[in-house]
């Protein structure tokens, strides 16, 4: 009993160390958000909101913001207000949209989550399967066909793939809409609505899947090559297991481990990729929001986006870590 307790104790400790990792990343962003504007010359209000914003603001609004964020106070008081505001979910005021930053982001976030979530699942499944097949049959025609394509695809910049697809299917062939997440004022509902959304989602999704496919594929393939050399593959063959069992249950399952770890590292990459593609396809997600904020120089909005994206990335990473411990008994029990 006591040994059992000890083990849990140990696991908790490790999890804390892990968590501290996420906390550190998060703090880094907070500090950046807080310090960066205040490092700029001029008074905080000017630095945080920028010239363009202030032109658009009335003096009352300025006063309200100064009060809300204690901008006329010394920095520690500012920090305290900043944190308290954050805890309330107050990310500041977007002069461009004339409303709170969090509200704006919440409008745009679901589309990004839809896009990345789907792309993530589809690209992971296809990438892993192609990688397993290619690695298992290395040197075959299939492998010789996939490998160069994937290496090429993996080398391309994501937004350019998007541009090409947009120009091809959207502009030239007219098969896909040029922007948006659904047709405005069409009043679709039910199945029509779903189809409409799918129609708009198609091109960005395909692009994102294509972009994300290559790294998953290459990594799975490499992992397969390594796993196939392991002795237990020989054991499985000598046991007379079927090809499929050897390929998926043993080689594939073990090759998944490094792939899952690497997914964690790839999540930031993937979300940024999605942001860029949203801009290319004018898809109303966080990326487009970011682009708007950038051209409008709406600094609080940029900060808010950064914070949300970071939180999303860290959460995903955490989930991936959790999955990993489920997948690999060596990590599950060795601790």
């Amino acid at each position: 009993m006591s040994s059992l307790l000890k083990r849990y104790d140990f696991i908790i400790k490790i999890d804390l160390i892990w968590l501290s990792n996420y906390v550190a990343s998060f703090l880094l962003i907070l500090i950046l958000n807080f310090v960066l504007p205040r490092m700029m010359p001029g008074d905080p209000l000017h630095a945080i909101y920028g010239e363009e914003a202030l032109i658009a603001m009335t003096p009352e609004m300025e006063a309200e913001i100064i009060k809300r964020f204690a901008l006329d106070q010394p920095w520690h008081a500012q920090l305290l207000t900043y944190i308290i505001a954050l805890l309330r979910g107050d990310l500041g005021y977007s002069y461009y949209y004339r409303t709170g930053v969090s509200d704006v982001i919440l409008c745009f976030l679901p589309w990004t989550l839809l896009l990345t979530g789907l792309a993530f699942m589809i690209s992971s499944c296809i990438g892993v399967i192609l990688g397993i097949e290619s690695g298992y049959r290395r040197g075959s025609k299939f492998d010789g066909f996939m490998l160069p394509i994937m290496m090429f695809l993996g080398g391309m910049p994501d937004f350019f793939i998007g541009i090409i697809l947009l120009l091809l299917f959207g502009v030239t062939l007219g098969l896909a809409p040029l922007g948006g997440a659904m047709s405005p004022y069409a009043g679709h509902s039910g199945i029509d609505l779903v189809m409409d959304i799918a129609h708009h989602l198609m091109l960005p999704l395909i692009t994102l899947v294509l972009v994300q496919l290559a790294p998953t594929y290459l990594l799975t393939r490499n992992a397969m090559l390594t796993t196939l050399r392991a002795r237990f593959i020989m054991t499985a063959k000598a046991t007379g297991l079927s090809e499929g069992d050897i390929r998926y249950k043993h080689a594939g399952r073990n090759s998944l481990l490094p792939v899952v770890t690497a997914i964690g590292i790839r999540v930031p990459n993937m979300i940024t990729g999605a942001l860029f593609l949203e801009i290319v396809f004018s898809y109303p997600g966080v990326g487009t929001l970011l682009n708007t904020a950038l051209s409008a120089r709406d600094y609080p909005l940029i900060q808010g986006v950064l914070l949300i994206v970071t939180v999303t990335v860290l959460t995903t990473n955490f989930l991936v870590d959790m999955t990993y411990t489920r997948l690999d008994p060596r990590v599950r029990y060795a601790r």
Binding site: R231, N254, D328
Partner: peptide
């Protein structure tokens, strides 16, 4: 494949990875 493990079997050198690490 139908013979292996059924009518003929082999025990490999006891190396760390002779068994699949993810199954009991």
């Amino acid at each position: 494949r139908r013979l292996r493990g059924d009518r003929m079997a082999m025990v490999f050198q006891n190396v760390e990875d002779a068994l699949d690490p993810v199954y009991t």
